[in-house]
Write a protein that binds this DNA or RNA. Sequence first.
DNA 1: GCCAACGTTGGC
DNA 2: GCCAACGTTGGC
Length: 149
Amino acid sequence: MKYWLMKSEPTAFSIDDLARRGTEPWDGVRNYQARNYLRQMRVGDQAFFYHSNCAEPAIVGLVEVVTEAYPDPSQFDPDSPYFDPKSSREAPRWSLVEVRFERKLARPITLRELKADPALAGLALLQRGHRLSVMPVTPAQWRHILALE
DNA sequence: GCCAACGTTGGC
DNA sequence: GCCAACGTTGGC
């Protein structure tokens, strides 16, 4: 089993939204590297749910991957903001996985706190740019972060 | 709202 | 294939 971190802007889709919905297709990823990570995901993988672009960026919950990657339908929908005219049903460019709410953390583990922790210096979230919306987390990083809760 | 860091696009 | 222009992300 692998571990991941997935970003969402809470004004668009928050951990509480996911808690209400239960399971959600993680659509709209339009970056090749992030897409490749989605395609590496397997049912049962675990991910941190991270709130980005907000007052207090933080890891706020845990989710489980419940499907393999499949073509993101929004790429074919001209009315969707994620529509990609260069993609086709014969050769879909973009993928998604579905994730299921597992639980909220007892408290948010903030970006500031992650940055201040020497054990997490290698965390992908903290590397230059860190603009990927989906990124891997090592088992050691996963355990270390959960122990901060 | 600013701006640094990137990815993508497209002219050449 | 280079690279400037442009758009987006996301912390602050």
